[in-house]
Structure formats: structure tokens, C-alpha cells
Simulated assay, not measured.
Amino acid sequence: MTIPFAGPQIPALVQRILERIDLGQLNPGDLLDEAELAEAHRVSRTPVREAILYLEALGLVRRLPRKGAMIFRPTLEEFLAILEVHAKLEGQAAGLAARRLSRQGAEDLEAAVRACEAKAEASPDSDPDGYYQLNLRFHACVATASGNGVLLESLKTNARRLLAYYRARYRFAGAIPASAADHRRIAQAIFDRDAAGAEALMQAHVQFDQVTAMDLLAALS
């Protein structure tokens, strides 16, 4: 899951690169060519280098000797470690949402769940990218309902390090209907104000076992 950054604190060029990551136009291991970025965005090399440094500080870019900067591609150990933290953050957001859900937040969350259910029924094993966009909306609704801006920002950055792998997950048979069913259970716990239940369900929803993690890393290597 990921939620787009917003606000003037994010440099414009960084925002454009982040959008390409969100849309799957830049994937783990892809190199960031300074000259190409400068030409594409009609800027000099200086803001491009500054943008890459900014993304490196966020953990979204890694510099390799003699290769330059590339979109972060984790090892299995790194993947599992990041996932462990991300599951905790997602779970915490769901737990807080159960305690703080507003009427508008409930309406938005219900709409997001229904959209996922409709997509899962219409295209249970096809259009994974289409479903993934609906999945992002569900997680965004939960995170927003948590009412914690610091947690929200942590989720945004951490999720982008895993975004390509979550997207790839929906290529697996049965993954879309299973995800939509999870969303309904999580949402119901939030609607019922069951903070502990919502937190546990969300953590289980976003977690991968090691075998699945290895499959996803191999698929995007």
C-alpha cells in the first residue's frame, strides 16, 4: 500500500519521481539516469542530484559503485525487516481508525471496500494493476482515519519501498478475492470500534510469509 505525498514541502522533481514509482513506471533496481531526468524535466543536473539525494535519504534510492543511483531493491533479509515494520504501522493505523473513525471516514472506507469487492467479483484473476489502485484507496482511507499525521508520513515512505512487490502480489491466482475479503473484515472491525481486532487483521493482511516474499523478489529481480 502507498499514499501519495502532498504539500509544498516535497520538491517538485521529487514529486514527479515519486509519482513514477507509484504508477510502476520506476521499479526496484531501475537506474536513475541524471542526464535523462534533466532532459525529461527540463532542469539542470543540480536539481536532479538534489532530488536523488532526497530520495536516498528516504531510503527509496540506493547508490551503487560505478553504476549510479537506482530505485531501492531489497535483499530478502531487508525485505522481511521492512515488511515487519510496515505491518506494525498498518496495524497501528487500523487500530487508531477504529477508535477515531468519523462519519465521513466511515463512508469513504465503505465505498473503498465495495469498489474492491466489485472488482474482485468482476475480475477475480485479471487486471491486477486495476485492483491495486483500488487497494491503495482502501489503505489510504484507513490511514487517514487514524488521525495521526506522523504515522501517515511514516506509512507513505515505508510503503513505497514495498510498493512494487504488493502490486506484483495480485498477479497470483486467488490473491484479488482474498484481498477484498480481508478488506471487508478489517473494515467491519473498524466500524465495530474493535481496535485490537482491526489491528490484528490489518497486520495479517499486509504480511507475507518468507516463501511468498522470495517469490515476489524473484519475480521483480
Rank of each mutant, 00 (worst) to 15 (best):
A204I: 01
I52F: 01
G59L: 10
Q188G: 05
L26G: 02
S123Y: 15
R73I: 08
A6K: 13
T75V: 13
I71E: 05
D129N: 12
A97G: 09
M1L: 08
I71T: 08
A112L: 08
V48H: 07
Q133L: 10
L55F: 11
A181P: 03
E77S: 08
P4M: 02
A98F: 03
I190M: 06
E34N: 14
I3C: 05
L163P: 01
A189H: 01
A187D: 06
H139F: 09
G174T: 12
H183Y: 15
M214G: 03
Q207W: 13
S179G: 03
R20P: 05
A195H: 10
A97E: 10
P128S: 05
T46N: 07
Y166R: 13
G105F: 14
D194I: 09
V85G: 01
P28I: 10
A143Y: 02
R62G: 01
D125H: 15
L155C: 04
L60T: 07
G174F: 11
E84V: 06
L163F: 02
A51Y: 10
Y54V: 02
V14D: 04
F138R: 12
P47W: 11
D30L: 10
A189L: 12
Q15M: 15
V206E: 00
D182F: 15
A38K: 13
E50H: 15
S102W: 13
G130F: 11
E107I: 06
K119F: 09
R42P: 02
L155S: 01
Q210F: 03
P28W: 13
L217W: 14
A87V: 00
N148K: 05
F5D: 07
I52K: 03
A143P: 02
P8G: 06
